[in-house]
Design a protein around this nucleic acid. Structure first.
Lengths: 232, 232
DNA sequence: GTGTAATCATGCAGTAGATGCAAATTTTTA
DNA sequence: TAAAAATTTGCATCTACTGCATGATTACAC
């Protein structure tokens, strides 16, 4: 289910202005990932990225608040959507199950956005992998994830009617969940297209809910989740 | 042996030079936390911090690679120590148990370092809380944690003889574990001295190993871990 | 169509983080 | 006490990022 109104999706380019903006945004993102994959984050300036996307350096900052955001930043309203969905979806069911569903779908959407940039999937994973290999870039991605984590924590707190000041559950679970996502993303990026990201995250959350098993189980998951060389 | 040669500890400052360096490092850290608690990270410059610690701005960067590192950066070799301990301690026992022991001890040491800066414990938590409240600072702390996470992942991989490229377990568990630590730190900082950090982390890891329980359990943990003084 | 309002791109100036280099200063060692 | 080693500091430089003013482009009402 590519469900109800994911505002994130590869959707309707309303006006001409909106289409142009989206195009520029993608151009910048693509240029950033390409250049970083070539030279490493430290040897790529905003000026370089802007030049590669044929806009002025100043314009770059109209689209992204920082160099790192161009690499890892998701859709502008991604965090808000996550918070709402986590807070309200499937009321009554265990929080961790909702987390699993919502976050794995979100990750799938994110991977989809990468493909929307055009080009070969494996190419993109190579770029993402290169970006993650750089320690500075790793830090940047973690920083990006903080906003997501905050949103998840808020959504959980609302869902459970918990006061984050008195109850560590929302904050700790959110941090652990986002950690799992990050771990899965890293593994996916390193797998050069042989792993289904959404499925991996799904399984990892199952493992998290069951108590992280000793070693064997997740390796099995990796095997399960590896594509058998056909599907798109 | 709580600290057989933890180079981190509040220990014997060999030479005069070493003592001075340590003193300056603490002065800078203290100044940074104080100023950020007062004005917020955005309104504190490196120049301010250096001035408050009576050193030149240039010297600041001899001690910390960034403004944020002065706030959240641990001992220089913290990551390496963690990796070694996780890789080799208590061989044969489940990885997650070793993680629990090592990381909760590490967190205790970190809290101890704060107290070594002098002053009232609650004061320090107020400072840490202020630092974490700032979104920019939250990002910075997450970025700091990446190095720890990397070290934990490497330690786990070595301990389990796992290939991180083929086996997601070390990476995912490390990310989840560090996430739990971050969640606990946030809760601790917000608790204004009523919670025992090491104990909280210890319990949170137990919960993680048992499969993150639905809501109730961690709230109970919070109660258990609260130093008696209030009720609910 | 045309004119007007909203929106976007761009240039310029300025603040601040960060690094390399070399001179000045301090601590160690012999 | 003098040479050696390590530290502090100032200076120049680069880059990230922001505010503000201005010109270009798109949207909209008539």
């Amino acid at each position: 289910m590519t469900s109800a109104g994911t505002p994130t999706g590869t959707a309707l380019p309303a006006s001409l202005r909106e289409r142009k903006k989206l195009a520029t945004r993608r151009l910048l993102r693509r240029a950033a990932l390409d250049l970083v994959a070539e030279r490493g984050l430290a040897n790529v300036t905003v000026e370089d990225i802007a030049a590669a996307a044929d806009v002025s350096p100043r314009t770059f900052f109209n689209y992204f608040p920082s160099k790192e955001a161009a690499l890892f930043g998701g859709a502008p309203d991604r965090a808000a959507v996550l918070r709402e969905r986590i807070a309200r979806e499937a009321p009554g069911e265990p929080a961790i199950g909702v987390l699993r569903a919502v976050m794995s779908e979100d990750a799938r959407a994110m991977a989809g956005e990468l493909l929307a940039l055009g080009g070969d999937p494996a190419d993109w994973q190579r770029r993402v992998k290169a970006a993650r290999a750089d320690p500075h870039a790793r830090e940047a991605q973690a920083a990006q994830m903080v906003m997501i984590e905050q949103a998840v924590a808020e959504g959980l707190a609302e869902r459970l009617h918990a006061d984050p000041e008195r109850d560590p559950y929302p904050g700790v679970l959110a941090a652990a969940a986002v950690g799992v996502i990050r771990g899965c993303l890293a593994f996916w990026a390193g797998s050069s297209g042989t792993v289904d990201l959404g499925q991996l995250i799904d399984r990892a959350f199952q493992a998290l809910a069951a108590g992280l098993p000793e070693h064997g189980a997740l390796r099995q998951i990796a095997a399960d989740v590896t594509k058998r060389k056909d599907s798109q």
